[in-house]
Design a protein around this nucleic acid. Structure first.
Lengths: 199, 199
DNA sequence: CGAAAACGTTAACAAAAGATAAGGACTTTA
DNA sequence: TAAAGTCCTTATCTTTTGTTAACGTTTTCG
């Protein structure tokens, strides 16, 4: 996949937050880099500071923790979404988790240092601040829903909801990752699926 | 409690995100309003759009959902913290939960319309965008930890962690609210406490 | 002050989830 | 292509949690 194609996809994807004018885009696009992850390559590893925000042009990834030698998947990322270990990226602290490609994945990257430059660039600053704010606000809304689900719903209800709102995820992601995402074990998810099939 | 005292507390509290210069503060402070909630007064109710972000000068509040006629407490707010139903506030949609004062609570408020004015004010815009971004980023980091706890920890581990990192909460908040916050029933929390006392 | 409400604990039972292991189907890869 | 690995299901057993209800204490409020 060539760079221009990736850049175009990125620009289109950003439009849900902010639209950049030609002169702005000129500058911004000079601060981008590109990456292709093979399946199982890592975008971030535990213990290292995450230096990039990535935009997924094609492919997917998962976010996971290692606890007692076991991997626990906490989140998925798909096309046209931003991916990063935000706390690590924003606070410059070592990541407590991994982010790994689920398949061959094409990314557009913004490095932390470049982002800071743009936030201090006279022409770009205001729009970049707004962009950052809107992205962060978007994530807050997603997180609100996710925490609400853990607080107010049973595992079975969370499964049913996921099945209703993002059925395709079951075609793209191994079921035991989804179980982790729902906060239960793979065995338990298998039981819930059987149980809910028979009403 | 008089206004000037509240304004000062607010300015100090904001310093963790952004510091405003005199001329900026001059403008910003004209867009503030003030409120005192009695115990059990609501800051937001389900079904209504949340029109304010509040800064708690004194007091505390809880965030709760009503499901099957039962209240489920999802979060607490204390002094020097911002409180709002963010998704409702940011996206202008009806809130799906309530926010209620746990005791007499003194607030400094920013109305949505005023915030928008400031975000478009030539002098304030950049700093307000940054302020908004940093607040949102701060919340993202909090949410990351909270979701991680649900994914990787058992209820007992979440209780132990809370007891270690925020012991004072048990003195300020009824235990059955904390149970909800941990994602379990009050009866279950009572059992966990007994169990963990005997090592 | 006194009645009502709120709160935490405990008990008993049912339901659900975790842990472990085994088996079969499907992929990957050497 | 054969072997190894991955993945999902199922079964069994244990542990934990949910549900409901009762009890005593404390707090709230008319």
């Amino acid at each position: 996949m060539d760079k221009q194609c990736k850049i175009n996809a990125f620009r289109t994807g950003l439009a849900q937050f902010v639209t950049f004018e030609e002169d702005e885009w000129e500058i911004l696009s000079q601060h981008l880099s590109f990456s292709t992850l093979k399946k199982k390559d890592h975008f971030v590893v535990e213990g290292k500071v995450c230096d990039y925000i990535g935009f997924i042009v094609q492919g997917s990834a998962r976010h996971y923790h290692v606890k007692d030698g076991q991997e626990i998947t906490g989140y998925f990322y798909f096309e046209n979404e931003l991916v990063s270990a935000y706390k690590s990226f924003l606070k410059r602290v070592p990541s407590i988790n991994f982010i790994q490609a689920l398949e061959k994945t094409e990314l557009v990257l913004i490095a932390y240092a470049d982002l800071q430059k743009m936030l201090n660039h006279p022409i770009l600053a205001l729009k970049m601040e707004r962009f950052g704010r809107l992205v962060a606000e978007h994530h807050i809304c997603c997180y609100e829903d996710r925490v609400t689900a853990f607080i107010t719903q049973s595992p079975e209800e969370r499964y049913t909801m996921l099945e209703k709102t993002a059925k395709d995820i079951f075609q793209r992601v191994p079921q035991h990752f989804i179980a982790n995402f729902l906060g239960i074990t793979p065995v338990s998810l298998s039981r819930i699926r059987k149980r809910t099939l028979l009403h």
